[in-house]
Design a protein around this nucleic acid. Structure first.
Length: 346
DNA sequence: AACACCGTCAACCGCGAGCCA
DNA sequence: CTGGCTCGCGGTTGACGGTGT
């Protein structure tokens, strides 16, 4: 494929396409010594390249854990959904696609997916159906394949949830005077705090201000709460309906009756409880991803997730069968919970 | 056959964040 | 606190192959 013609910059370093010999030198050096400082690597490896060029060549091409070739349908869908959620954060998207590089995904998006969405009448930036097309469809002058319409609507809903959450985050960060993103875990115990202040946590939770916080909360559940339960031998309390996934605004229904940290204490609001926006964001995201179970205020067991506010006088979220006395069915709850996490690519 | 145009994607550029002295 | 250095990220470029005229 396309390559820039080889040339040399003013400092005598080579630019442009890599030769097989150069690849071999770089590969052999990194496999033997690791890359260490990229700046000093070229000299040590006998390459007349700048460190940046070497790093790029390694991360985008030579690294052994790279999958090349055609993207699968599953990968296409993942990229589209993540793009709706994360925007052009290619490295974050790549983190969800094992063996694909951010550069590859970015190129694939720009050359294939963006055009495909546009063709289907979806704005690739907003992931919303273009008004003109929707309008003409409604007027009957344009027909849209119902299957596509369903997919597009799904994608658009994700984006709507994302935009709402982002807007609220901006509002909050302004009104709270720029509190640290980790504020929302202030009520966890010391061991949780230690766990939180790892690079992994910082990368996942702190550095991306625009991610809907409800996703952080779900991550927090999995990263913080479950390991604690297992550590304490309490995994039988792995009951999203009562504990892990209780969005508790107060009132009689509460997870406080089990001896585990609860999500409601990790929300980042002053005081202990989440607010309605926070809860509805999560509902929206989970519901929009295609599960059919959530019905606000509905206590009939007809899906995965539901609000239980009307029967308990507060705002909580539970899985079917987990909030009306049959909460002993841990296996079922765990299954639902795992499915949600899996879908959200945790 | 010759030329123009288009699509692809490896490679480059510039910026910003983190780290450290 | 500051400034220099390094690295990673997202946007952009441009060579090359394919296709159309």
């Amino acid at each position: 494929m396309g390559r820039k013609s080889p040339n040399w910059d003013s400092t005598g370093l080579k630019r442009g396409p890599w030769t097989p010999e150069e690849d071999q030198k770089l590969l052999a050096y990194v496999q033997h010594h690791g890359h260490g400082s990229w700046r000093s690597l070229p000299q040590k490896a006998g390459l007349q390249r700048c460190g940046k060029s070497c790093r790029l060549r390694w991360t985008n091409y030579l690294r052994p854990d790279i999958k090349r070739g055609k993207f699968t349908l599953q990968e296409d869908q993942t990229i589209i959904q993540l793009h709706a959620l994360l925007g052009n954060r290619w490295s974050s998207i790549a983190a969800h696609l094992p063996k694909r590089t951010d550069n590859e995904i970015k190129n694939y998006w720009n050359t294939h997916l963006k055009k495909r969405l546009a063709k289907m009448g979806v704005d690739p930036v907003t992931h919303k159906l273009q008004k003109a097309i929707l309008g003409s469809a409604i007027a009957g002058t344009t027909t849209i394949d119902p299957k596509n319409l369903s997919n597009l609507s799904h994608v658009a809903q994700w984006e709507t949830a994302r935009l709402q959450a982002e807007a609220r985050l901006v509002r909050e960060s302004k009104s709270r005077g720029g509190h640290h993103q980790n504020d929302h875990i202030h009520q966890l115990d010391n061991s949780d705090h230690q766990l939180l202040h790892t690079d992994q946590f910082d990368t996942k939770f702190s550095r991306t201000a625009s991610r809907p916080r409800c996703l952080d909360i779900l991550r927090a559940c999995q990263t913080l709460v479950l390991p604690n339960l297992i550590k304490n031998g309490d995994e039988n309390e792995y009951d999203p309906g009562y504990g892990l996934l209780s969005f508790d605004n107060g009132g009689s229904y509460s997870s406080k009756n089990i001896n585990t940290p609860t999500v409601s204490t990790t929300m980042g609001f002053e005081g202990q409880y989440c607010d309605d926006h926070e809860q509805s964001d999560l509902f929206e995201v989970l519901n929009n991803q295609g599960t059919t179970g959530y019905e606000a205020g509905d206590n009939n067991n007809n899906g995965w997730i539901r609000e239980v506010s009307n029967s308990y006088g507060n705002n909580a979220i539970g899985f079917c069968g987990s909030d009306r006395g049959d909460h002993d069915d841990h296996e079922v709850n765990k299954k639902y919970w795992d499915e949600v996490l899996k879908f959200l690519s945790f």
